[in-house]
């Protein structure tokens, strides 16, 4: 952990990190302020203004039900970001905790946690997501729960590995020798040592979470319409692609740019933390 401060400085010196951070900030701001912006109601149907092309009144045109596409893209950002950030956050906390417990305590806890985590990891993320949504049924909070279940084992794996590595270090042994309580060892010795690694992974997986969420909504088992999400907007735009390309292209561009920004930031952080990475 050489020079964390200089790491932060190096991060801000990288142009791609700056672009990524600025992009994310812009998207988060737009999503958060959506209700305050002068946008039309994303759910309001205007049966007489359907499939209208981009104009001054509606910058990105209207969809087949006469709803404003720009407004839906921005409100869709709300849903997509909410789902991916909350689920990655939850998975990060839960997964780290479980992984550390498994790596630190070993024994039955390790067997139980790692068996289940490995079994869940045996499924590609989208496929596990589909299976879970089949059980939960559609809805925003259900997608969050689903993505949390999908992502947690991945954090468990990383935290487990790191915790095992940290465990044998002298300072933990020293702490154990003075019989410090687990939460103290966790807070003082383990978490700070694995935090940066977990954070990089978390940021890179936000992109994955956004993709999986969009895919689920696209399949029609994620967030159900009329709530706008990028995935279900692309889905309904697909039918009208030749005459109203904006319906599918606007949300597609939104997903693409958001993931690009997260990838830029994630990559830059990783470059700083681990200059010799190759993933």
């Amino acid at each position: 952990m050489s020079g964390r401060r200089s790491g932060g400085a190096r991060l801000l010196a990288s142009p791609s990190a700056l672009i990524g951070l600025a992009g994310i900030a812009a998207i988060v701001l737009l999503a958060a302020l959506a209700p305050l912006l002068p946008l039309s109601d994303p759910l309001a149907q205007q049966p007489y203004g359907t499939l209208a092309g981009p104009s001054l009144a509606s910058w990105l045109g209207t969809d087949n039900q006469g709803r404003d596409v720009l407004s839906r893209v921005i409100f869709g950002a709300q849903t997509s970001l909410l789902i991916s950030l909350v689920s990655i956050g939850l998975a990060m906390v839960l997964g780290t905790l479980l992984g550390v417990v498994a790596g630190y305590y070993r024994g039955y806890a390790e067997v139980a946690i790692m068996r289940v985590a490995d079994s869940l990891m045996a499924f590609p993320s989208l496929i596990l997501g589909v299976a879970i949504m089949a059980i939960l049924g559609s809805g925003t909070e259900k997608v969050i729960l689903c993505l949390t279940i999908v992502m947690t084992p991945r954090f468990v794996r990383i935290a487990y590995g790191s915790a095992m590595a940290v465990r044998v270090k002298e300072y933990i042994e020293a702490a154990q020798a003075v019989s410090a309580p687990f939460h103290r060892i966790l807070a003082v010795h383990i978490v700070p040592n694995i935090f940066s690694e977990i954070l990089v992974v978390a940021i890179l997986w936000i992109g994955t979470a956004i993709q999986v969420e969009a895919s689920l909504s696209f399949i029609g088992i994620g967030v159900s319409p009329p709530t706008p999400t990028w995935g279900n907007m692309i889905k309904s735009g697909l039918d009208y692609l030749p005459i109203a390309p904006w319906m599918a292209l606007a949300p597609s561009a939104a997903i693409f740019l958001t993931i690009v920004f997260f990838n830029l930031v994630g990559d830059s952080i990783r470059d700083v933390v681990d200059p010799r990475h190759y993933g």
């Binding site: 992109g207 969009a214 895919s215 692309i234 597609s252 693409f256 993931i259 990838n263």
Partner: peptide, 9 residues
């Protein structure tokens, strides 16, 4: 771009 574009898009 390739890493960021969803396959269905």
């Amino acid at each position: 771009s390739g890493l960021s574009i969803p396959s269905f898009v």
